[in-house]
Amino acid sequence: MSFTVRKDEAKGVVVIGVDGQLIVGNRHDLKKKVMDSIEAGERKFVVDFAETGYIDSSGLGVLVSLSKKIRETGGDLRLAGLNDDLRTLFELTKLDTLFTIMGSAEEATASF
Protein backbone atom coordinates (compact mmCIF):
# COMPACT_ATOMS: atom_id res chain seq x y z
CA MET A 1 0.00 0.00 0.00
CA SER A 2 1.26 3.45 -0.78
CA PHE A 3 0.27 7.00 -1.52
CA THR A 4 1.13 8.84 -4.69
CA VAL A 5 1.32 12.62 -4.67
CA ARG A 6 1.17 14.79 -7.75
CA LYS A 7 0.29 18.41 -8.34
CA ASP A 8 -1.87 19.92 -11.04
CA GLU A 9 0.17 23.08 -11.50
CA ALA A 10 -2.44 24.84 -13.59
CA LYS A 11 -5.12 24.52 -10.91
CA GLY A 12 -2.78 24.49 -7.93
CA VAL A 13 -4.33 21.23 -6.68
CA VAL A 14 -2.45 18.48 -4.87
CA VAL A 15 -3.84 15.04 -5.82
CA ILE A 16 -3.07 12.16 -3.47
CA GLY A 17 -3.82 8.66 -4.72
CA VAL A 18 -4.51 5.88 -2.21
CA ASP A 19 -3.05 2.72 -3.73
CA GLY A 20 -4.28 -0.18 -1.59
CA GLN A 21 -5.92 0.43 1.77
CA LEU A 22 -6.46 3.49 3.95
CA ILE A 23 -6.56 1.90 7.38
CA VAL A 24 -5.24 2.00 10.92
CA GLY A 25 -1.76 0.90 9.84
CA ASN A 26 -1.04 3.66 7.29
CA ARG A 27 -3.37 6.57 8.09
CA HIS A 28 -0.50 8.52 9.70
CA ASP A 29 1.44 8.36 6.42
CA LEU A 30 -1.42 10.09 4.61
CA LYS A 31 -1.71 12.66 7.39
CA LYS A 32 2.00 13.45 7.17
CA LYS A 33 1.90 13.89 3.41
CA VAL A 34 -0.99 16.34 3.64
CA MET A 35 0.45 18.21 6.63
CA ASP A 36 3.80 18.56 4.82
CA SER A 37 1.98 19.99 1.81
CA ILE A 38 0.02 22.43 3.99
CA GLU A 39 3.31 23.47 5.56
CA ALA A 40 4.65 24.08 2.04
CA GLY A 41 1.71 26.40 1.33
CA GLU A 42 -0.70 24.08 -0.49
CA ARG A 43 -4.41 24.64 0.15
CA LYS A 44 -6.35 22.62 -2.43
CA PHE A 45 -6.40 18.85 -2.07
CA VAL A 46 -8.00 15.88 -3.81
CA VAL A 47 -7.77 12.36 -2.38
CA ASP A 48 -8.26 9.86 -5.19
CA PHE A 49 -9.61 6.42 -4.22
CA ALA A 50 -9.72 4.93 -7.74
CA GLU A 51 -7.05 2.35 -6.79
CA THR A 52 -8.27 1.72 -3.23
CA GLY A 53 -9.42 -1.63 -1.88
CA TYR A 54 -11.04 -0.68 1.41
CA ILE A 55 -11.09 2.02 4.08
CA ASP A 56 -11.61 1.47 7.80
CA SER A 57 -12.96 3.85 10.42
CA SER A 58 -9.44 5.07 11.21
CA GLY A 59 -9.06 6.01 7.57
CA LEU A 60 -12.40 7.82 7.62
CA GLY A 61 -11.30 9.56 10.81
CA VAL A 62 -8.07 10.84 9.34
CA LEU A 63 -9.98 12.27 6.36
CA VAL A 64 -12.30 14.12 8.76
CA SER A 65 -9.31 15.42 10.69
CA LEU A 66 -7.46 16.56 7.55
CA SER A 67 -10.56 18.18 6.12
CA LYS A 68 -10.93 20.27 9.26
CA LYS A 69 -7.26 21.20 9.23
CA ILE A 70 -7.34 22.22 5.57
CA ARG A 71 -10.50 24.29 6.05
CA GLU A 72 -8.84 26.08 8.98
CA THR A 73 -6.11 27.22 6.57
CA GLY A 74 -8.70 28.45 4.08
CA GLY A 75 -8.42 25.48 1.76
CA ASP A 76 -10.58 22.50 0.82
CA LEU A 77 -10.30 18.72 0.58
CA ARG A 78 -12.35 16.89 -2.04
CA LEU A 79 -12.71 13.15 -2.60
CA ALA A 80 -12.82 11.25 -5.89
CA GLY A 81 -12.80 7.79 -7.44
CA LEU A 82 -14.98 6.04 -4.84
CA ASN A 83 -16.51 2.79 -6.05
CA ASP A 84 -19.96 1.69 -4.81
CA ASP A 85 -18.56 -0.19 -1.79
CA LEU A 86 -16.40 2.71 -0.64
CA ARG A 87 -19.19 5.22 -1.22
CA THR A 88 -21.43 3.08 1.00
CA LEU A 89 -19.01 3.60 3.91
CA PHE A 90 -19.39 7.37 3.57
CA GLU A 91 -23.16 7.10 3.29
CA LEU A 92 -23.55 4.79 6.31
CA THR A 93 -21.48 7.12 8.48
CA LYS A 94 -23.16 10.21 6.93
CA LEU A 95 -19.72 11.52 6.03
CA ASP A 96 -21.04 12.03 2.51
CA THR A 97 -22.68 15.13 4.00
CA LEU A 98 -19.32 16.43 5.20
CA PHE A 99 -17.23 15.96 2.05
CA THR A 100 -17.50 17.07 -1.54
CA ILE A 101 -17.37 13.78 -3.45
CA MET A 102 -16.65 13.87 -7.18
CA GLY A 103 -16.60 11.09 -9.77
CA SER A 104 -12.96 11.26 -10.84
CA ALA A 105 -9.77 13.00 -9.75
CA GLU A 106 -9.90 15.03 -12.96
CA GLU A 107 -13.42 16.25 -12.17
CA ALA A 108 -12.45 17.03 -8.59
CA THR A 109 -9.38 18.95 -9.73
CA ALA A 110 -11.36 20.91 -12.29
CA SER A 111 -13.99 21.79 -9.66
CA PHE A 112 -11.58 24.06 -7.76
Binding site: D56, S57, S58, L60, G61, V62, V64, S65, K68, T93, K94, L95, T97, L98
Partner: peptide, 8 residues
Protein backbone atom coordinates in the same frame (compact mmCIF):
# COMPACT_ATOMS: atom_id res chain seq x y z
CA UNK B 1 -20.18 13.62 12.98
CA UNK B 2 -16.92 15.60 12.89
CA UNK B 3 -15.10 13.49 15.48
CA UNK B 4 -11.98 11.69 14.29
CA UNK B 5 -12.90 8.35 15.87
CA UNK B 6 -15.77 6.23 17.17
CA UNK B 7 -17.09 4.73 13.91
CA UNK B 8 -15.62 1.22 14.11
Amino acid sequence: IELNQGRG
